[in-house]
Design a protein around this nucleic acid. Structure first.
Lengths: 222, 222
DNA sequence: TGATTTTTATACTGTCTCGCATAATATAAA
DNA sequence: TTTATATTATGCGAGACAGTATAAAAATCA
């Protein structure tokens, strides 16, 4: 989310839009909305990867010309990182309330995987897969900053799943012998696997079956 | 493996080399060995991916100049496909006897994962990950032939794991209630997960711990 | 020896690539 | 109005890119 200027409670609030509260900017107004432009860039990077995405492609997709892109987001690498940041943020907010909730473990897992598949398949004719797994993962070898972000995403997910299983065990949904950390790694692995399989063109139905089977094993008999 | 000419048991066998059995080729002799050149190309594709690997890079790595590359392997896409074919072949022969053996299930799984980690980490300073998961998976969206190969690799592994679990159940290592197909998908997922994590720079030790935990769950109590 | 065959070596072409320099444009402030 | 500011629009330039054309080199065959 773009940093918004302090929202002081002025008497009159002319247009309802948030950004309209900002003091009038000085020069020529932007012809683009940074937020939607970043979304377009993200989708392009998800589809083609870093190397195969040219600045001309990005320019065409965002509707911004090259200098505007640089002014707004920096060079290609910075734009890539900001796109990835955006992807992670979106994924986080999409799953936040599930990870915060106290629903039965099976339900929580099912909802998480459902959202993940929505992200992986998207609305396009061709599936995108997972940015962390495919695109960012590939670049992680070369760029320490990206590598750090990918590692954060991976272990962050592990921890989130682990807390789910820990709670489930406390609630008696799982036997005392269940190891939350190990189960969390299996849950992550299942997510990774359906991410790969979606990108490989396997039908969503198959992946949903995999998810169902994995949930059965992880919540053994519960 | 390259198709070798029929090895007829002639009386005199001058040099021990296999390729020397071939009838003498007509023109200027090759300055490269196709097999090792393909190996170099494979490693480059694994490191950088398809788009970021230039023909100049490939030329330098293989020691072949551009026209020789074309003559031997075709254009970049064909070379990529041949490299991937080679990768799959190597992985298959490296695991063939384990998948064919009748060892205890835990041992078989442990050996498979150990070989996988060897492949993913390699001898280089920087890990490579899995060609199927990373590089080929990314390209699968655009190229039907690559997509087919990736799907083959994925479901082929599922089936191989499934036959392991089926045998284990028959031998009484696993309870009757164990579902070989579901367990196989978990075994594949674990492999996918460590492939991703290796590329993301996580230490091998961590991945070995993940493997150990996953094996414990999959062979529940056995 | 000379002719044929196969590969290597060099260099070229037209296109794309990234990043930036420059100039035009649209707004707010003075 | 004029000035200052911030953005857009155009396009340049040095280099990388994939693929190929052409010629030289090294072998076998006659």
């Amino acid at each position: 989310m773009v940093q918004k200027t302090k929202k002081l409670p002025s008497a009159k609030a002319p247009p309802a839009k948030l950004e309209a509260m900002a003091p009038k900017r000085r020069g020529r107004p932007r012809a683009y909305e940074p937020d939607v432009a970043l979304g377009k860039a993200l989708d392009l990077f998800r589809k083609d990867g870093f190397a195969a995405t040219s600045l001309d492609d990005l320019s065409a997709a965002t509707g911004m010309n090259r200098p505007s892109l640089y002014g707004a987001f920096g060079d290609k690498r910075e734009l890539f990182i900001k796109s990835y940041q955006r992807y992670r943020d979106e994924a986080r907010v999409a799953t936040a309330d599930i990870f915060r909730s106290e629903q039965p473990i099976r339900e929580r897992l099912a909802r998480i995987y459902s959202i993940a598949l929505d992200i992986y398949f998207g609305n396009h004719s061709e599936p995108r897969g997972c940015f962390t797994v495919m695109t960012a993962g590939s670049e992680a070898v070369f760029d320490p900053e990206i590598r750090g972000m990918v590692q954060d995403a991976l272990v962050g997910l592990d921890k989130a799943f682990a807390s789910c299983f820990r709670l489930a065990r406390e609630k008696g949904e799982l036997p005392e012998s269940a190891d939350p950390v190990v189960l969390a790694q299996l849950a992550s692995a299942t997510l990774h696997s359906i991410a790969i399989r979606s990108r490989a063109g396997l039908p969503r139905k198959d992946l949903e079956a995999i998810v169902a089977g994995a949930i059965d094993v992880m919540c053994c008999g519960a």
